[in-house]
Nucleic acid binder design. Structure first.
Lengths: 155, 155
DNA sequence: CGCTTGCTTTGAGTGCACTCCAGGGTTCTA
DNA sequence: TAGAACCCTGGAGTGCACTCAAAGCAAGCG
């Protein structure tokens, strides 16, 4: 894996942190599928599959037809990764990708979609915190009752 | 399963809130499968399936062989529900159920399992908060750029 | 008594998100 | 110029967590 190195970050309005470490500068960003797999943690299979189902915005190809991913593709995959771990179904991400492809007039719809997703994430965090409370009660039960057989209802 | 008997709500070391509203008092707690489905939000199919795979601790039966769930079963299902929404695989929950069935000498192992789960939950909360940050950046981008076509890298 | 509704079982089917395979072309290293 | 390592495609396969089907018993009601 020939990773050169990275300079600045981006032309992205939505800058944020460098996302990953091993990027190439923006003119020389042509990654093979296995490089992208290594950078994203996704398998090459999955990357091809994402493309087939319409979750990727037109990946460039070499003159012989092999995929060449750009920094922009990496940014997109980072977003997809984030959305994925909110539990958003792939179909919904495809929907979002379609909106992006459709052009600027879908701004509002994307906005709504993201806001709804945001609500879902907040709800899931709340759920998890509820679970944490249950877990902590159980854990302190087991910590205390190391030996004394104090019966607990659900164990 | 060594709980002798219970008074108002519980002898449960792990008391907590009433969990659900529509419970019957502890002597008269014999719910049909469809009642439990309504109370837990799980389908009757799923409840039977949980039993088949060893995720339920011996559900009682009527004289004609129909399932009769108790408040204790409801408590168990509430715990399972919590664990489920942490993303814990069903196989791991079955493992926990086996430990409970195996008796008091598995206390330590259950303790470890719960602590590991707790760590997972904390990690997942952190992930979600990271995602939230990304979503908020995107959302404010779309909020600002309501009309002006400021190009953003991943849209 | 008959009807409806609900419950039982085993085994098969579904949907999602990958994951792999076969059979072939391409690119890098020695 | 080999050979190894990588990449391509379409379609089939996998694992998980349900979900349903079929065929039959059981309980309550007019």
């Amino acid at each position: 894996m020939t990773v050169t190195e990275t300079t600045g970050t981006t032309t992205d309005i939505c800058a944020g942190p460098p996302e990953h470490g091993d990027r190439r500068p923006d003119g020389a960003d042509r990654y093979t599928i296995s490089e992208v797999a290594a950078l994203t943690g996704l398998s090459a299979h999955t990357l091809r599959w994402y493309e087939r189902i319409g979750l990727m915005p037109h990946v460039d190809r070499s003159h012989t037809g092999q995929r060449r991913y750009t920094n922009r593709d990496l940014d997109w995959l980072a977003l997809v990764g984030k959305l994925r771990l909110t539990g958003m179904p792939v179909a919904d991400m495809v929907r979002y990708a379609e909106l992006v492809r459709a052009g600027d007039h879908t701004y509002r719809e994307r906005f709504e979609l993201l806001k709804a997703t945001r609500e879902d994430v907040l709800a899931r965090i709340a759920e998890l915190q509820g679970t944490l409370a249950v877990l902590d009660r159980k854990i302190s039960f087991y910590a205390d009752a190391g030996q004394s057989p104090a019966p607990e209802r659900t164990r």
